[in-house]
Simulated scan of single mutants.
Amino acid sequence: MLLHNPPLTPPFEKEGDKRQVHLGRFAPSPTGPLHFGSLITAVASYCDAKAQHGRWIVRIEDTDIPRIYPNSEQHILQCLDAFEFESDVEIIYQKDRLEYYESVIEQLRQKKLVYACECTRKILGSNHIYTGTCREKNLDFHQQAIRVKVADETICFQDRLQGQHCSNLQMDLGDFVLKRRDGIINYQLAVVVDDYLQGITHVVRGADLLDNTERQIWLGRLLGYPELTYMHLPLAMNDQGQKLSKQNLAQALDPNNASQLLKQAIAALGQAAVDLDSPHKMLAQAVAQWQVQRIPTGTEIQGIFQ
C-alpha cells in the first residue's frame, strides 16, 4: 500500500483473500439531485453485491467543490433513507480525504510518474489529445496542473455487459490530469484511491463512464492496486434522446414515491417483477431474483424516462 497513513485497511486484506469478498459501491456526486438514472445504478450495484452475499457501500464523490449543488447532498441522503438502501460501512465524503490523494500524488512524483503542466485551455485549443508539451519542462508543482504519464500500449478489460473494451491512452488521450491548477483533485485519482482503500472488487455504473475505465486501470497499475471487475449499465434516456443527467435537467427523485420508482427501476433493468411493498421488502425480492443476463444489452435502455 502506498499511503503512509491510510484511513482504512481494505477488507480483503483483513480477510486474507480479496476473491472471497464481493464488495460493490454506489458513489453519487452532489452536483445535483439524484434522478431516475441514479436510482437504476443504485439498484443494480446493490442487487449485484447482495446477490453474491457481498457488501455494498455508499461514497459521496464531492472533490469538485465548486460544482456542488446546494442541498443536493441532503437530497442524496434523503433518497437513500426513503428507498431504504443501507450502506454496510459508514458513508465517506471525498472532500474530507484530500490529504490522502495528495499523498498519492507525492509518491507518484517521487517515482517520476507525474509532472507539472502549465498548459491552459487556450493553449491546448480544440485538441483533445495532450501531446506532452510540458513533460520534459520540469516545472515546479506549485499552482500547476499535475498530469500522469501514460505509455504507448493498449489497455483492455472485459466488461460484464459491454464486452471487451480497449484504449491506447497515448493515442486516444495523452497524459491526463490528476489535479487541476485550482487545486481540485480529479475524479480519476480520487475514485481509484478510494476504490482500493475501501476494498471495492466490483464496479457497477453507467455506460457514460465506460471510457474512463482504461485511465483508472492504468493509474491503478502504477499504484500496484489489484484490478477490479466492471459492469457498465445501459443509460436511461429522456424524450430528447439524451441520457438522464443533472446537466440535462433530469427530474429529481421524489422520496415520497419511493416504492413505485423502485418498481420502475427494477423493470428498467429487465429483472423479474417485484411486488409493490415497502422498499426494504422490494429490494430483498429483487436481490433474490437478480440475474445479470436479464439486463438490457447495449448502452441505452429502450423507453423514455424522466
Score class of each variant (00 low, 15 high):
residue 152 D to W: 11
residue 144 Q to Y: 00
residue 123 I to N: 13
residue 123 I to F: 13
residue 127 N to C: 08
residue 158 Q to N: 15
residue 163 G to C: 02
residue 161 L to N: 03
residue 180 R to K: 07
residue 94 Q to G: 07
residue 118 E to V: 13
residue 94 Q to H: 09
residue 91 I to P: 01
residue 135 R to A: 05
residue 148 V to Y: 09
residue 126 S to L: 12
residue 162 Q to G: 04
residue 209 L to D: 03
residue 151 A to W: 15
residue 136 E to V: 10
residue 194 D to V: 05
residue 204 V to Y: 08
residue 94 Q to R: 07
residue 170 Q to C: 13
residue 121 R to S: 06
residue 179 K to P: 05
residue 219 L to Y: 08
residue 145 A to Y: 10
residue 204 V to A: 06
residue 219 L to G: 04
residue 206 G to L: 02
residue 131 T to Q: 12
residue 104 V to Y: 00
residue 114 V to Q: 03
residue 173 L to C: 14
residue 98 L to M: 10
residue 140 D to M: 10
residue 153 E to L: 11
residue 99 E to F: 07
residue 88 D to V: 00
residue 105 I to M: 10
residue 86 E to D: 15
residue 174 G to E: 06
residue 96 D to L: 10
residue 164 Q to K: 13
residue 167 S to A: 11
residue 112 K to D: 13
residue 157 F to N: 13
residue 95 K to R: 11
residue 108 L to M: 06
residue 167 S to H: 14
residue 189 L to S: 06
residue 205 R to N: 04
residue 142 H to R: 15
residue 173 L to K: 10
residue 214 E to H: 10
residue 213 T to H: 07
residue 176 F to S: 06
residue 133 T to Y: 10
residue 152 D to K: 11
residue 182 D to R: 04
residue 167 S to Q: 13
residue 190 A to Y: 05
residue 206 G to R: 02
residue 105 I to A: 03
residue 86 E to Q: 15
residue 128 H to S: 12
residue 132 G to I: 03
residue 183 G to D: 02
residue 92 I to Q: 07
residue 176 F to A: 06
residue 105 I to L: 11
residue 179 K to I: 01
residue 129 I to M: 04
residue 174 G to H: 06
residue 171 M to I: 15
residue 166 C to S: 08
residue 144 Q to I: 05
residue 155 I to T: 15
residue 120 T to K: 07
residue 160 R to E: 14
residue 102 E to D: 12
residue 175 D to K: 07
residue 120 T to P: 08
residue 135 R to S: 03
residue 151 A to M: 14
residue 219 L to F: 08
residue 174 G to D: 07
residue 124 L to E: 06
residue 207 A to F: 08
residue 216 Q to S: 11
residue 125 G to A: 06
residue 184 I to K: 02
residue 205 R to Y: 05
residue 169 L to W: 06
residue 139 L to V: 01
residue 129 I to D: 03
residue 185 I to K: 00
residue 125 G to I: 05
residue 191 V to C: 09
residue 203 V to A: 07
residue 212 N to P: 08
residue 101 Y to L: 00
residue 149 K to V: 11
residue 159 D to V: 07
residue 197 L to G: 05
residue 123 I to P: 07
residue 179 K to F: 01
residue 206 G to E: 03
residue 109 R to I: 14
residue 111 K to M: 11
residue 155 I to A: 09
residue 100 Y to N: 09
residue 86 E to M: 09
residue 203 V to M: 09
residue 156 C to V: 07
residue 134 C to G: 02
residue 145 A to P: 12
residue 137 K to F: 00
residue 95 K to E: 10
residue 136 E to S: 14
residue 158 Q to E: 12
residue 142 H to M: 11
residue 183 G to M: 03
residue 133 T to M: 08
residue 93 Y to T: 05
residue 125 G to W: 01
residue 202 H to L: 09
residue 126 S to N: 12
residue 104 V to A: 09
residue 118 E to I: 12
residue 96 D to N: 12
residue 177 V to Y: 00
residue 96 D to S: 11
residue 179 K to G: 00
